[in-house]
């Protein structure tokens, strides 16, 4: 088993599949009355969050607690970090406290890579800057597999602000590893340069959402921040919605079986209309539930549990 999960590229197909299978077993546990496993009793998992992200933090917290680990939440606000402590000094502190795993959310890309050099425990990337969010990709893949029965050969469109999206990067890497075909869709200003060469040569790029939809099994809408407008990535939120938003009319262009995903938090009315978000094709709430199972699987396997 790998030691750290810093990038979805850390996972080969066998390891990724093992995590998804393990997540399935963890999900089965959620249906029981007692949801806890004793597996990580006596182990310490630190949630080191430099960005506000209640949903990701509580998902990791629930995952660690269901595995009976001791959980320490260390958030940048109200800690020594706001007094200017360096990441290295924080890492050495966590090291001294005997953290077996550090789950890190950080605004700077690559912070988990730096952290891994300073702690002995496992490092799990819970989102770093505009780089990656590998457990989100795992829970997304798990959700797709649960709904559609497979990943190999699946056609997935990821739509929106790919440039600034850590979710998109991790999904492209993981889905490609697992045999899916990814098409990135968005205005050219929000598609990063050389994306196929950077992540996987099979990745396709389109600027036309309407032409892509009829061929998709999955369409994943990314959150688009309205502030991008100030930087001229697009002229206005109305124009963005018209060209790249998923509304009912567009949803009808999808094949009958296709699902609609969103990593949250949504901008209802911007990249997705409420009718679509709340439709039966939407897996948005399921994704949240699956997040706990996927993160349980990651912690369980990284910390030496056996499948």
């Amino acid at each position: 088993m790998i030691k750290h999960l810093r990038s979805a590229a850390d996972l080969d197909a066998a390891t990724a599949t093992l995590i998804l299978d393990t997540a399935g077993e963890m999900a089965a546990l959620a249906g029981r009355e007692v949801k806890k496993l004793p597996t990580l009793r006596g182990r310490t998992v630190v949630n080191l969050f430099y960005e506000d992200s209640t949903r990701t933090r509580i998902s990791f917290e629930a995952a660690a607690k269901r595995l009976s680990a001791d959980v320490i939440n260390f958030s940048a606000k109200g800690s020594s970090v706001s007094k200017g402590e360096s990441l290295k000094d924080t890492a050495l502190t966590l090291q001294a406290m005997g953290a077996d795993a550090v789950v890190i959310r950080h605004p700077a890309s690559g912070a988990p890579h730096r952290l891994a050099a300073w702690v002995d425990g496992s490092v799990v990337n819970a989102g770093d800057g505009t780089h990656e969010h590998p457990t989100q990709a795992l829970l997304d893949a798990y959700t797709m597999r649960s709904r559609l029965g497979r990943l190999d050969g699946l056609r997935v469109a990821i739509v929106g602000d790919v440039l600034h999206s850590r979710v998109a990067r991790s999904n492209v890497l993981l889905l490609t590893t697992l045999g899916a075909q990814v098409t990135l869709v968005g205005p050219p200003t929000l598609i990063p340069v050389d994306i196929a060469a950077a992540l996987s040569p099979q990745t396709k790029v389109s600027y036309d959402l309407d032409s892509v939809l009829p061929d998709m099994d999955v369409v994943m809408m990314l959150r688009v921040q309205t502030e991008r407008m100030q930087d001229s990535y697009f002229p206005s939120s109305r124009e963005y919605s018209r060209r790249y938003g998923l509304d009912l009319a567009r949803m009808r262009k999808l094949p009958e079986h296709a699902i609609v995903m969103h990593p949250g938090p949504m901008n209802r009315g911007m990249e997705i209309t409420p009718e679509v978000a709340d439709s039966s094709r939407s897996t948005i709430v399921e994704q949240v539930a699956n997040g706990v199972s996927a993160r349980m699987a990651v912690l369980y396997l990284l910390l030496g549990g056996k499948a």
């Binding site: 890309s109 990067r169 050389d194 060469a197």
Partner: peptide, 16 residues
């Protein structure tokens, strides 16, 4: 900007 804009900056999520 953090590094050369190209394939590697895209992969690393660093502003080009």
């Amino acid at each position: 900007a953090q590094m050369h804009e190209g394939e590697v900056s895209t992969r690393l999520g660093l502003t080009g």
